[in-house]
């Protein structure tokens, strides 16, 4: 197992998440795809830490920070989705045009 296998895995995972962000109509589906992209970045952090900097732990610490920020992001995002859903009764992003003047 070399570093490039893990990088290829994380690249594929990021690409799948990007495709989901670009094509999903459902806002909760878009949030889930963003989680996939964040996980791909985390795999990169931990793999680089393991293969290039053994004995140091800053990469793993950054992965933990990203996990925490992803938790904060998904909490605020889902609270916003529920607040919007209470108003316009839709989860599809084409209907989210109430800011239009």
């Amino acid at each position: 197992m070399t570093l490039s296998y893990y990088l290829a895995l994380s690249g594929l995972l990021f690409t799948i998440g990007l495709f989901g962000v670009l094509t999903r109509r459902n806002v909760i589906g878009i949030l889930m795809s963003i989680e996939l992209m964040l996980n791909a970045a985390n795999i990169n952090f931990v793999a680089f830490n393991r293969f290039l900097y053994p004995g140091q732990y800053a990469g793993q610490l950054n992965a933990i920070f990203i996990i925490t920020l992803a938790a904060a992001e998904v909490v605020v995002g889902l609270a916003l989705v529920m607040a919007i859903y209470k108003n316009i009764k839709s989860v599809y992003v084409e209907d989210y045009n109430i800011l239009k003047g």
Binding site: M1, T2, S4, L7, A8, G11, F51, P54
Partner: peptide, 16 residues
């Protein structure tokens, strides 16, 4: 682009 970047890091084994 990811595959091109991955090529730069091919063949690095785990140190320990």
């Amino acid at each position: 682009a990811f595959l091109k970047i991955t090529g730069y890091f091919s063949g690095i084994p785990a140190a320990a």
